[in-house]
Design a protein around this nucleic acid. Sequence first.
DNA 1: GGATTGACGTGTC
DNA 2: AGACACGCCAATC
Length: 108
Amino acid sequence: MEQSFYDQVFEVVRLIPKGRVTSYGAIAKSLGAGGSARMVGYAMSNAPLAHPPIPAHRVVNSAGLLTGKFHFKTPDLMQELLEKEGIVVKGDKIQNFKKYFWDPLIEI
DNA sequence: GGATTGACGTGTC
DNA sequence: AGACACGCCAATC
């Protein structure tokens, strides 16, 4: 089976603890992809196609902005899920992003 | 197999 | 502070 970056990305995203978030770049780095942060986001396009559900709402860009919220079923869903996990989101942006940040490089 | 595409990142104007 | 530009790199057309 060709485990493309997509599968690797999915795997990492699924490892994100509840109430935590991470950035595309961090995931890419943990995969050894380095600057291919775009690939991570690109992979997430296939997230809804993945068999196990992927908590894509826990993945945001380096600024803590919910850039991919429009790719969800509904744009508000992402923020709702995050707030439900205790994360404060204001203006499509995560507050105390640094505090909620989960680094796969460290945790894995 | 070249061109296009992206849920990004960092830097510059 | 906000807008714009370029770079990265793999998958898809």
